[in-house]
Design a protein around this nucleic acid. Sequence first.
DNA 1: CTCTCTGCAAAGCATTTGCACATTG
DNA 2: CAATGTGCAAATGCTTTGCAGAGAG
Lengths: 148, 148
Amino acid sequence: MIDSKGVDAGLLQTRYRLTKQRAAILRALEDGAHLTAETIHERVRAALPAVSLGTIYRTLDILRAIGLVQVFAHGGAARYEAALDKHHHLVCASCSEIVNIPAPQIAALALSIAQDHRYSGVDAALVVTGRCARCAGLARNGASTTGG
Amino acid sequence: MIDSKGVDAGLLQTRYRLTKQRAAILRALEDGAHLTAETIHERVRAALPAVSLGTIYRTLDILRAIGLVQVFAHGGAARYEAALDKHHHLVCASCSEIVNIPAPQIAALALSIAQDHRYSGVDAALVVTGRCARCAGLARNGASTTGG
DNA sequence: CTCTCTGCAAAGCATTTGCACATTG
DNA sequence: CAATGTGCAAATGCTTTGCAGAGAG
């Protein structure tokens, strides 16, 4: 997986080349999780102003194929994060806060479901949606809760 | 919820009007599950040739807000289905077959996770991805598995 | 009759792609 | 040097929206 000293190792083990753009994208993914392609673009631009959004998408797609990156859809745009560990997500419907949750029991459940239906090569994604304490509090006061 | 004799009851209990377009959309949703907006459009057109895609989207959005319809994203386009019961999905990564799975234990797990993080009004969606037996078999023979 | 809905067509986002040039290994 | 990657900009696919006329209650 990704390691702070050897972020790039993953790529080096493939036919893909390690360009400065890709290294920057991997670094951006280390800093924050659940990032939008556009957010990643902004962050990468800090180091490499000329990088295009197209390159971000192409690279993220490669990283996902290799298994270095995990994607998860929320609110129109896809969210990307480094595939450090297997986890699921708890999302606030109001402010879109995203919390990682371990839920290790899901893996076994998914496997059992898959076997029942003769599916192989299984993966599972659980998304729990609700309202965080802060947003629930604001809602009680009748205030708008949209935003971060 | 939706009943074969009273599909429309849900709408009638709201401020929304029951138009022939909406009735047709509800009926299309009874027939098949996991439908794309475009598929629903085609089906509705059989009865009402002039219906526009825009109306399909507007209606589906209302039905979701009321709770008559459940959405679930897969492969670019959103999939819609009547909210008859709470269930989850098993999806074949090759042919995109979608199987409904009950997994009642998820609700309790989601609730417990939500409580841990002081979230309220919780809902959970589990998507299990894998390769169905047929696609796995075809893959073994080196044939293309896309489609179906 | 009033308020809501509809069709149409244009707009809006997120994402993908073709191409000529730049870069990596 | 050969193969792969990049920027740019146009194209795509799904979904949303403004508007004027049509229809529901």
